[in-house]
Computed example of a mutant assay.
Amino acid sequence: MKIGIIGAGQIGGTLTRMLSGLGHEVRVANSRDPETLAELAAETGATAVWAADAATHADVVIVSIPQKNVPDLDAGIVAKAKPGAPVIETNNYYPQQRDGRIAAIEDGTPESVWVAEQLGSPVVKVFNGIWWKHLLERGVPAGTAGRIALPIAGEDGPGKQLVFELVDQLGFDPVDGGTLEESWRQQPGTPVYGKDYGVEDTKKALAEAPRERPEDFRAA
């Protein structure tokens, strides 16, 4: 598949390595000149591009940048993908640690719903709660004991199913995290966040998530 990745940090860079290694055609961008990604491109075989071009004709788009920077992306940046291509977002809202106050999220809008509104496109939330090193190193074939499960929230349909298949290819068990409106169940501070649970424990943690945002993940 053709996969466009906007963001080359810990998660974006890791997914560039892994997806290129699986044989996908990856175009990766950061907020700067493509030349700044020359080393990553040489290592992985991915193509470094300007952010405005990353999603062009992509089968899947991944947005993996700090939450506070999402509004700075060019309008329609993900609309250049193929019709129906899912847009994955891996972001988390860290108001005290990085992002500052985002009023809509503080008022109760789930993080990923806010991202979708900024992008003007539906999104699928996944990869936000796994440590990048575990994402890089702990993927294993389906059926392997102890395989880590990853919750996936978004609208049901072919796009979400494609994300399920991609997560499985990467070596993790996909777990349906519900609609995007329910994506708060996997936000920072919830029982599933940062855990390397299997399928059943992931489902249990999602079900037990409290609706109220923890104090550490609210604006001070």
Rank of each mutant, 00 (worst) to 15 (best):
S121L: 02
G198R: 05
E35F: 03
Q67A: 13
S64A: 15
S112F: 01
L22T: 02
G7K: 06
V87W: 08
S20Q: 09
D216Q: 15
R211V: 12
I88G: 11
R218I: 01
P66H: 12
A153C: 15
I65A: 13
F217L: 05
T36C: 01
H134W: 08
L180S: 02
A55H: 10
A145V: 14
F217A: 06
D99P: 09
Y93C: 06
V167Y: 06
E35C: 07
A205W: 02
P66Y: 08
E43V: 00
A85C: 14
D107Y: 01
D53N: 15
K82Q: 15
I65H: 12
V63C: 13
K125F: 03
A42S: 13
R147W: 07
P151I: 01
T47C: 01
L136R: 15
S121T: 15
D59F: 08
K204H: 14
E165F: 00
P151W: 01
P158M: 04
G177N: 08
V124H: 12
T56D: 15
G157C: 07
V70L: 05
D53P: 11
R218Q: 06
G4D: 07
V115G: 04
L119G: 04
T144Y: 10
S20T: 14
L170H: 06
G178M: 02
E208R: 03
T109I: 12
L19Q: 10
E181L: 11
P71V: 09
D74R: 13
Y93G: 07
A219N: 10
T202L: 11
T47H: 00
